[in-house]
Amino acid sequence: MEHLTKRYGSLLALDDLTFHVAPGELFGFVGSNGAGKSTTMRIILGVLAADSGRVLLGDEPLDFSARRRIGYMPEERGLYPKMKVGAQLQFLAALHGMTPAAARASARAWTERLGIDERFDDNVADLSLGNQQRVQLAAALVHDPAVLVLDEPFSGLDPVAVDVMSDVLTEKAAQGVPTIFSSHQLDLVQRICHRVGIIASGRMRALGTVDELRSRNGSTLTVRGDQSPGWAQGLPHVSETSYEPGCTRLRLADGADDQLILTTALAQGAVHEFARTTPDLTELFREVVSA
């Protein structure tokens, strides 16, 4: 995605958005509602046209033929409710160019893999929302796509289904398939993604591996003991974020010497806890979005 810009009237939905997803990479695309995630995905698929910028697959602009190689899962699900699960998957596979025999075999394989093979001959409308979600994922995978673009694929799934879907995405990544997906389940994004992009107001505000993002603002040190307020003042690469009797929390930048901090704390009084932690993705997301 190179310099994508999109306006809806006076609303700037995407503002010079640039990022890439590498082969075999699980890329978590996260942001608040209305941040621009779905607009970006619709531009990738050609559902929307960007006002400026371009989308490339490798070094080539995406055209109709290339888009047939993408597995897409829209946020607004696109299944036919009065059509049987198996027939629907075979129909969608055929639209991507598969032969009838290959489409049937793939539909069977994916319904078994996702635990809905017993509902193969049931209408989609008769399935629970969670099982409909599994069918929707099968629809994105049935034609053996070269790229996956999934908008909120984990929404509405129970924990077992989340594990199944996570395993499927990890397997596709191991096969070299670049995958971009959006999700509000940041603990899941943190667990399975190779890289993460945080978008806010149409701009990419943070981009990198989970470890890079979590360490970009330093780590937090919690010191519980008998220290007085301001005891860490003047220590290099250290700033006090909060103090209450018996507990001080410090923000550590690169270069902070935790042994010097411990020595200083002990000079002030007993130390009962000395714990260093790195902010998780949820904390970072709140910081980025609020900023």
Rank of each mutant, 00 (worst) to 15 (best):
M1W: 03
E2H: 14
R7K: 13
L11D: 07
L12N: 14
L12K: 15
L14D: 07
D16K: 11
D16E: 08
T18S: 12
H20N: 15
V21S: 00
G24P: 04
E25D: 02
E25C: 00
E25P: 07
L26R: 04
G28L: 01
G28V: 03
F29R: 04
V30S: 14
G31M: 02
N33D: 13
G34D: 06
G34A: 10
A35I: 14
K37A: 00
M41W: 01
I43S: 11
V47F: 07
D51G: 08
G53V: 12
L56I: 04
L57Q: 10
G58S: 01
G58E: 04
D59N: 12
P61C: 09
L62G: 06
D63I: 07
F64C: 12
R67L: 08
R67W: 01
I70M: 10
I70G: 10
G71K: 05
G71C: 00
Y72Q: 00
M73W: 12
M73T: 09
E75C: 00
E76P: 07
K82C: 05
M83N: 08
M83P: 06
V85H: 04
G86L: 12
L92P: 06
A93T: 05
A93G: 10
A94D: 06
H96Y: 13
G97R: 12
P100R: 07
P100G: 01
A102D: 12
S106H: 12
R108V: 14
W110G: 08
E112G: 12
R113Q: 11
R113Y: 05
G115E: 13
E118S: 15
R119K: 15
N123G: 14
V124M: 07
V124Q: 05
L127V: 12
L127C: 08
Q133W: 14
Q136R: 09
Q136M: 09
Q136S: 07
A139E: 04
A139R: 06
V142E: 04
D144W: 07
D144C: 05
P145E: 02
P145G: 11
L148N: 04
P153G: 04
F154Y: 09
L157W: 05
D158H: 03
D158L: 00
V160P: 02
D163R: 15
G176F: 07
P178D: 01
S182L: 01
S182K: 05
S183T: 08
L188T: 01
V189F: 07
G197W: 05
I198F: 13
M204Y: 09
A206C: 06
G208A: 13
T209Y: 10
T209W: 13
V210E: 03
V210W: 09
L213V: 10
R214L: 08
S215H: 13
R216V: 13
S219P: 10
S219N: 14
L221F: 04
L221V: 06
Q227A: 09
W231C: 06
W231P: 06
L235H: 00
H237Y: 12
H237T: 03
S239C: 02
E240R: 09
T241N: 05
T241K: 09
E244W: 03
E244Y: 08
P245W: 00
G246N: 00
C247A: 15
L250F: 01
L252R: 00
D258T: 15
L260Y: 13
I261P: 00
I261S: 06
G269C: 02
A270L: 15
H272K: 10
T278Y: 12
D280E: 13
L281D: 09
T282D: 15
T282V: 13
L284F: 11
F285R: 13
S290F: 05
